[in-house]
Write a protein that binds this DNA or RNA. Structure first.
Lengths: 299, 299
DNA sequence: CTGAAAGCGCTAACAT
DNA sequence: ATGTTAGCGCTTTCAG
């Protein structure tokens, strides 16, 4: 009997309608909310999620966000409107309250925001450790004056920019060095502008940690244009280990966050949480430093 | 009465369930199938789709494909399983037969593959014109020996690699020049290898059009590593105008395909097609050359 | 203008 | 083992 049905299924090319299944059970689909299409790092995370979910028999649908302002809240609501079985949020910048509200409505895993509590699970890069890796690396090379380019910190707690800055500060303090923090946006343009301002200082740092690769590219661009040799005159480091960082002749020293693995782990946690609600689990993934040609001993 | 319902809707935070709506009407959601998370150009397209659809009151959900092999067929099927109102396919590499089959099941618009027929609409960059722009540009600079790095052409008709190569060939012929086509994959690694092979030739071309930015980066990498100065010893051009191409010190001359505009136009066509099935419409978007520092007159 | 009911495709709980 | 049925939340049609 079972066989005859299977037979008919193949012959007729029958496929169950997800919406109808949703009305009585599950959709076997999870949503990735607010995938930033401008950032390859997020793509890496999403790909990890996709692969792990596929192996487990789940489909993945993503809501996108790019230059448009389409809010993260609307994105996540849409996943709920489709009654998906689970929700993955990538670096959600919403309030803690909103985050909890979603997590109470649908099994949720947060990636890239340090979390706590039982409402959801989280997987984040250990951003403080990443900043420390960079400082240690630069100090090891002989640098003493290491500046840090920090993204404006929003009041929302647990986002990478917050932990990277505090990681930098405490690492510098541990080495007995003075912190030197410049604030701006983590974009290429803002990085370019910050580099220009840096060059006008009477006393320049010998190294700069740009906080994020995309900002580091802005620094590298200005330095190149102005004939400031990297790493001879100044060392530059980033964070995210974007594919571009590895490219010749850029060779940007960066912190790798294992985005693909983070995505896979988040998928695993989400599947567990879908099967059975349980206490929140929160993971910090240790990053690793990828030293390239943009950092060297000071002259 | 209507007001009292609206009142209750806001107070209770009621949101209609898409799956249930789908059983009697529409989902007001369209699917973008097989978004390649490793390519920023596709993200640009998807962002255009997203913005235009949002303005029209439609939601957009994307299926992802990255390093995993998750097939495009499965991706598109999944959009149908969710009974979405429309389907957008980005550079679908499936057979013409499969493409038509999908288009008969769901209103479909194809981006990045030259199409014809009434089953679906299409929006593609005029790839032949793009290749011609590069050849004209290089010839204008004084180059005579211009090589082209071509992606292996699959038998599926209408894909960019096919039209770029034929555009290159006919442009060269029009200038009375001999074509010089090297075949390989459009990846950074394959580009690196092809560049190495090129350098071992007794008689090198003075310029190379790599066909795609990602391959051009491979060429630039090898040239840089081997001390071959660009553009002094050899000019390099790409296609796609990836954000990376604009970066200092890369400055890759490239063909811009207006990905964002293509996405918006595709969205517009899809909305029309959802409202009322009609004859297929097929657009070629004229590309433009962005000349940067990687191309110059031969020594 | 408001209310009631049928039915979309599925799953789970039942009856045979 | 196989067959039948209720009901998920919505839209559309039909009745009052």
């Amino acid at each position: 009997m079972r066989e005859r049905v299977q037979q008919a299924v193949s012959e007729l090319g029958y496929r169950p309608f997800v919406g109808a299944r949703a009305m009585r059970g599950a959709t076997y689909t999870v949503g990735v909310s607010s995938l930033d299409t401008r950032n390859l790092f997020f793509g890496l995370i999403a790909d990890g999620v996709q692969q792990a979910m596929e192996r487990a028999g789940y489909g993945v649908l993503a809501t996108l966000v790019g230059a448009g302002e389409g809010s993260q809240l609307e994105s996540a609501e849409s996943v709920i409107d489709h009654r998906m079985d689970g929700l993955i949020l990538i670096t959600p910048r919403m309030s803690r309250r909103s985050l909890d509200a979603f997590a109470h409505k649908i099994p949720t895993v947060v990636i890239g925001r340090h979390g706590s509590g039982d409402a959801y699970d989280s997987v984040a890069s250990d951003d403080a450790a990443g900043a420390r890796l960079v400082v240690d690396h630069l100090v090891g090379l002989g640098h003493r004056h290491i500046a840090y380019y920090s993204q404006r910190v929003s009041r929302t707690a647990g986002l990478p920019e917050e932990l990277r800055e505090s990681g930098y500060r405490s690492a510098m303090a541990d080495h007995g060095l003075q912190p030197d923090v410049v604030v701006g946006d983590w974009t290429q343009e803002a990085g370019r502008a910050a580099a220009t301002a840096l060059l006008e200082r009477p006393c320049r740092p010998t190294a700069i940690h740009a906080g994020a690769d995309i900002a580091a590219f802005g620094f590298l661009g200005t330095f190149w244009d102005r004939g400031v040799r990297v790493p001879d005159e100044i060392s530059v480091a980033g964070c995210d280990n974007t594919p571009v960082a590895a490219m010749t002749p850029i060779g940007l020293t960066s912190v790798d966050q294992r985005g693909h693995a983070m995505g896979e782990q988040a998928a695993q946690l989400l599947i567990e949480r879908i099967r059975r609600p349980r206490a929140g689990r929160h993971f910090l993934v240790p990053p690793r430093l990828i030293a390239r040609t943009s950092t060297a001993a000071p002259r």
